[in-house]
């Protein structure tokens, strides 16, 4: 599987920002199925309602996709433009090994059609991201992600430094 060497965008999840509103699920199902059936969406919010924990679960578009490794039909491909891992429905026999082995719950079975469904990044314009007001879902490139993570870590570090300095006074 060959990848593009240019800046590649990725769908990034920040569960701490998720408000559990299910706009992503609803928009995803309308976009893909033309009906409102969150059950058939490619993204799902897993909730621990009584504890207030909400975690969006969607395909991570792995660099080395486990679904590809386990697929006996070689039906798992990569979109050359978006880098999305996609399933060739012509080749897929619906054995569901990908569903079973994906560690992220990123692949699912459509209960209506009994076919495999997963996120294809909407050809590079993910609808879920467009509907996610709190920005728990973002479509950004890897360097931006790395930079933000470093910055967040540096901020924590600087707070820590300040505390240490204050303690010395």
């Amino acid at each position: 599987m060959r990848r593009r060497l240019t800046l590649q965008k990725m769908l990034v999840i920040d569960p701490e920002k998720c408000t559990g509103c299910r706009l992503c699920e609803t928009a995803c199902s309308i976009h893909n199925e033309k009906t409102c059936e969150p059950e058939r969406a490619r993204i799902h919010i897993t909730k621990w309602e009584n504890e207030g924990i909400y975690i969006p679960i969607v395909c991570q578009q792995c660099d080395i996709p486990i679904c590809e490794t386990v697929c006996p039909m070689h039906a798992v491909k990569r979109d050359p433009e978006t880098h999305a891992v996609i399933i060739d429905s012509e080749l897929c026999v619906g054995c569901r090994l990908c569903v079973q082995f994906c560690p992220f719950g990123g692949v699912g079975v459509d209960d209506k059609t009994k076919r495999i469904i997963k996120c294809d990044l909407c050809n590079g314009e993910p609808v879920c991201v467009e509907f996610c007001q709190p920005e728990a879902l973002q479509y950004i490139n890897a360097t931006t992600l790395n930079m933000r993570k470093r910055r967040a870590a540096a901020e924590k570090f600087s707070e820590h430094l300040k505390k240490m300095l204050r303690a010395n006074y």
Binding site: T19, L23, G52, F131
Partner: peptide, 28 residues
Amino acid sequence: IGTSGCYGCAVHCRHRYVLKEGPYAPLY
């Protein structure tokens, strides 16, 4: 610990709160 929204809401107007101390803690 963050806000929470009802179905289909982009405004998410309520907080998820935790009381860690006091006679009624822990409370979510």
